[in-house]
C-alpha cells in the first residue's frame, strides 16, 4: 500500500505544479526596458487600471526577433517597449492593431503613428560613459568627441553592445551612419571596432561593465545610467560634441489578442502626463513634457535621424556589419 501512498503524493505534486495561477485580469506583454523599469511600468499599470502585466525582460533586438518568429500567432497581447524598427516592421506587415487613442491627442509626430499602429512612450539615447576611478588612475579625461574614441590609447578599453542582439547598438549604428554619411560612417565604425574590447548582448551591459571598472569607456543606453549613479557606481557620462542619436520606446497592440479592451486601456494610460512623468523620472524624453532625471530641462544635442529608414536598413546593415567587422578571423 506504500506504493499507493507514493502515487497519491506524486499525483498531488503534479496537480499543484500544473495548476496555473489564474488572476482576474491579466495581459501578456513583451517589455524591452530594463528589468526594474519594466517592473515600475507594470506596477504603474496595475495601480491605475488593475490589469496585471505578465512580462519577460528581453532586449529590443530579441523582442523584434521573437515577433518575427512568432508572426502571425503572437504569444503576447502587446508590446510595451520595443525599438522603433519593430514598430515600423509591425506596421508594414500589419502585425499591429491600429487604435486611435483619444488619450494621445496633441503629442508630437515622433511619438505616435498617424494611424495609431504604434505609440512612443519615451525616447532614449545613447551616451558615452567612463569609469571615474580608472580614468583618474590612467591619468586620462573623458573624450570630448566620438572621433577621440579612435585614439589607439583606448584599445581594448571600450565596450559597446552588438547590433545583432541590441536595439541600442542598432541606434548607435544608424546614428553614426546618419552623422557621417554611409561611406564615412562605416569607416568610423570599422575604425572604432579596433578599439572595442567586445560587443555585449544587451544595450545596458556597458553601463555596468564600465561602472564596475572592467573597462574604462562604454557606449551605452542612457536609460539605466541614472540608476547606476544612484547605486553608487563611480560613473561619469557625457554626450560628445557631435551629439547623440535616439530611438523611441514603442508600445503596440499585437494582432490576434483576445484582450483588446485591456490593451486599449493600457495604451490610453501610457498617453497620460502621469505616465510621462514616470518615464521622465526614469530618464526618458517623454511625449508629455516632464523634467528628465538625467538631463534635466536641457536636452542633449541630437543627430538628425530618419527612424523609418533606419528600420528599413536594419537587416542590410547587419549584413554589412558582419562582413566588415568579422574579418579579423581570416
Amino acid at each position: 500500500m506504500k506504493g499507493k501512498c507514493v502515487a497519491v503524493v506524486v499525483a498531488a505534486i503534479f496537480c499543484v505544479a500544473l495548476a496555473g495561477s489564474a488572476a482576474a485580469q491579466e495581459i501578456n506583454a513583451y517589455m524591452g526596458t530594463s528589468p526594474d523599469n519594466n517592473a515600475k511600468i507594470a506596477k504603474f499599470i496595475k495601480d491605475k487600471t488593475g490589469i496585471t502585466v505578465n512580462q519577460t525582460f528581453q532586449s529590443f533586438g530579441e523582442i523584434e526577433a521573437r515577433v518575427k518568429a512568432e508572426a502571425p500567432n503572437f504569444n503576447a497581447d502587446m508590446i510595451i517597449g520595443c525599438g522603433s524598427s519593430t514598430g515600423y516592421l509591425a506596421k508594414k506587415n500589419g502585425w499591429a492593431v491600429p487604435y486611435a487613442s483619444p488619450a494621445w491627442k496633441g503629442v508630437a509626430d515622433v511619438f505616435m503613428d498617424p494611424q495609431g499602429n504604434w505609440y512612443n512612450i519615451g525616447n532614449f539615447s545613447f551616451l558615452l560613459v567612463g569609469n571615474k576611478d580608472r580614468l583618474a588612475k590612467a591619468g586620462r579625461t573623458m573624450p570630448k568627441s566620438w572621433k577621440e574614441l579612435l585614439d589607439p590609447k583606448w584599445k581594448g578599453e571600450i565596450v559597446m553592445p552588438s547590433p545583432l542582439s541590441s536595439g541600442t547598438a542598432n541606434m548607435m549604428r544608424y546614428s553614426f551612419l546618419a552623422l557621417y554619411g554611409d561611406a564615412e560612417g562605416w569607416k568610423f565604425i570599422e575604425a572604432l571596432d579596433k578599439n572595442i574590447h567586445h560587443y555585449t548582448r544587451s544595450g545596458n551591459a556597458p553601463t555596468d561593465l564600465v561602472g564596475r571598472g572592467e573597462f574604462i569607456l562604454g557606449l551605452t543606453s542612457d536609460e539605466n545610467v541614472k540608476k547606476r549613479l544612484d547605486d553608487g557606481y563611480p560613473l561619469i557620462w557625457s554626450v560628445p560634441a557631435e551629439g547623440t542619436g535616439y530611438d523611441g520606446t514603442f508600445a503596440l497592440i499585437l494582432k490576434g489578442t483576445k484582450k483588446l479592451d485591456a490593451a486599449k486601456k493600457i495604451v490610453d494610460l501610457l498617453g497620460t502626463p502621469e505616465f510621462s512623468a514616470l518615464m521622465a523620472e526614469i530618464g526618458y524624453m517623454t511625449p508629455r513634457p516632464a523634467a528628465n532625471a538625467l538631463y534635466g530641462k536641457t536636452l542633449p544635442k541630437y543627430i538628425n535621424l530618419d527612424l523609418g529608414k533606419a528600420a528599413d536598413d536594419k537587416a542590410k546593415n547587419n549584413d554589412i556589419w558582419k562582413a566588415k567587422l568579422r574579418t579579423d578571423f581570416k
Binding site: 503576447a76 551591459a205 561593465l209 561602472g211
Partner: peptide
C-alpha cells in the same frame, strides 16, 4: 514566454545586465 519566466533565465538576464 511573457508571464512565465524561469529562474535559470532570470539569473542569466540579471547577470548579463549587471
Amino acid at each position: 514566454s511573457p508571464g512565465f519566466q524561469l529562474a535559470a533565465v532570470k539569473i542569466f538576464d540579471a547577470a548579463v545586465y549587471g
